[in-house]
């Protein structure tokens, strides 16, 4: 492996922390600054860091699913959260809220989770594709 020991050791420590932090950001977005978008970016970057340290194959294996699937699931969750209020005769994207043990839960949180997954998926599609230098995307052409 041409990757440095320092980077690999650091990555092993940092990646779980970053993932945890991304979830923290996601949930914090409920009432304060933060949210699915920024959380998803941090999570995406953590997988990217893992890919830089150990290679994209290891990073893909750690993800356990394809980024495309993440995108699809994320979009799906967002759509569901947007459509839920319609069942109750409300308008598209209207916020629905329930009180549970003193915690307010609502469809905007669900929407944010969808955004979170979508952003991870999109970031990783781009990063993996560039990192692997996909020959279909960038066929090697001699430039004279």
């Amino acid at each position: 492996m041409r990757h440095s020991v320092i980077l690999r050791t650091a990555a092993r420590l940092l990646v779980p922390l970053m993932l945890l932090f991304s979830v923290f950001l996601l949930l914090r977005g409920h009432n304060e600054t933060g949210g699915g978008f920024i959380g998803g970016l941090v999570a995406g970057i953590s997988f990217a860091l893992y890919a830089i340290a150990y290679g994209t194959a290891a990073s893909r294996a750690a993800l356990r699913t394809t980024p495309q699937q993440l995108m699809a699931v994320g979009l799906g969750i967002a759509v569901v959260s947007a459509l839920l209020p319609l069942l109750g005769g409300g308008a598209l994207l209207e916020g629905l809220w329930v009180q549970w043990q003193g915690i307010k839960l609502g469809s905007p949180v669900l929407f944010d989770v969808g955004v979170y997954l979508l952003v991870i998926g999109v970031t990783l599609v781009v990063i993996y594709e560039l990192e692997e230098h996909n020959p279909r995307l960038f066929p090697d052409v001699s430039l004279g």
Binding site: V126, L137, F138, P139, V141, L143, G144
Partner: peptide, 16 residues
């Protein structure tokens, strides 16, 4: 912007 940059990069590769 990201899309156009990739497009131009790809064009650069094929046309030089």
């Amino acid at each position: 912007l990201a899309f156009s940059l990739v497009l131009i990069y790809r064009l650069y590769q094929s046309r030089g």
